[in-house]
Nucleic acid binder design. Sequence first.
DNA 1: GCCATCATCCCTCATTAGAGGGGTGTCACA
DNA 2: TGTGACACCCCTCTAATGAGGGATGATGGC
Lengths: 209, 209
Amino acid sequence: MSAPAEVRILVVDDHFIVRMGLVALINTEPNLKVVGEADNGEQAVERFQSLRPDVVLMDLRMPGTSGHEATRHIRRLVTNARVLILSAFDGDGDIHAALDAGAHGYVLKNATGEELIPAIQAVAMGKRWIPREVATRLKSRNSYEQLTAREIEVLNELARGRANKEIADTLKISEYTAKDHLKSILAKLRVADRTQAVTAALQRGIIQL
Amino acid sequence: MSAPAEVRILVVDDHFIVRMGLVALINTEPNLKVVGEADNGEQAVERFQSLRPDVVLMDLRMPGTSGHEATRHIRRLVTNARVLILSAFDGDGDIHAALDAGAHGYVLKNATGEELIPAIQAVAMGKRWIPREVATRLKSRNSYEQLTAREIEVLNELARGRANKEIADTLKISEYTAKDHLKSILAKLRVADRTQAVTAALQRGIIQL
DNA sequence: GCCATCATCCCTCATTAGAGGGGTGTCACA
DNA sequence: TGTGACACCCCTCTAATGAGGGATGATGGC
């Protein structure tokens, strides 16, 4: 795979200011060009279909359809679509979910131009791009066990401050089972109680408020 | 107070991309000019002293010295210094703390250029600028009682997953007192348990993770 | 001087949470 | 045809939690 003479880029972020910054930065590079913008996940998918950019620069956390979902959707539409995630968060849940969704790279929002431009160029050529600090996160994550879908459901109820009995009711299971899921959550996240479970899960990007 | 022929602006944000966007946006206005940038609170205070800008565009949540502290510091240096807060968060704790620190305005980061430019112009003229959505937050906040300094200390311990006994030890008070503070926190935030207290406090910007 | 607020301490008591065990059925995969 | 992972259910027991009281000293405004 070689670099196209001109790399056409779709910028996706819910913040106008961030899009403005990305456009300004990208347009300083002769072979990079922003061909479109989107401020949410659905719009990103639409614009991708009509514009067919070479690279999508995608924010993760957005109101409505998240960057994860949009990335997954785009990759389903075009198998070799190239998505570079640009996220403010270095929680390993976010990172892993993004790579799972089929992103080619993950760059933190505090990146400078010197870090971001090479990332775009690399992804445009079909390469993967994971900065060292992000890769470290990925490794550290492996030392934590993966939560099951059911456990994440329980975790979300925990974050809403639900008691075990209430969780049992909403999930239509017995309180015993709810407590069982909680037990494995505590064990997997290596924390002592439900409050720590919630803050740990927030920090790792497993759940959002 | 009238608008200076040229408004000199100091841009403070820990994200390079955001600063880039702000500079790009501001430089489209003939009478606005970015004269300096800072990526943290201490640097903001330094640059303010050496550059003496007409307006400081300040991010709130930054590693190290926060925007609140930097704003307070700058206002102590120059009584009529003009600070416009630019924050991604609409938690009422953040908003109130910013205005307490002496900020002239508060604009959300999802603001477009049409919203941000008038805000800068207004603050440059010494006016206050609070968008309607932010003002609504402020009002709704008044329906919640103010937490005391000690309660916020306890809240921070809660967020770290500390048990009542541990909180009592670190704050060097009896467990009874720790429980008392917890009781008033629950009452003031109108929640039922410690986990809800933590998530509510996070959402309202009273504490950060 | 008085009243309000805050921080502190104390006690009781019902409920919840968390740790420890036991077990069943299902489904995939080797 | 095991074997492992998962979701589910059940029981016990201790410690933690939260609600309800009562109480003191310091501080600061009015």
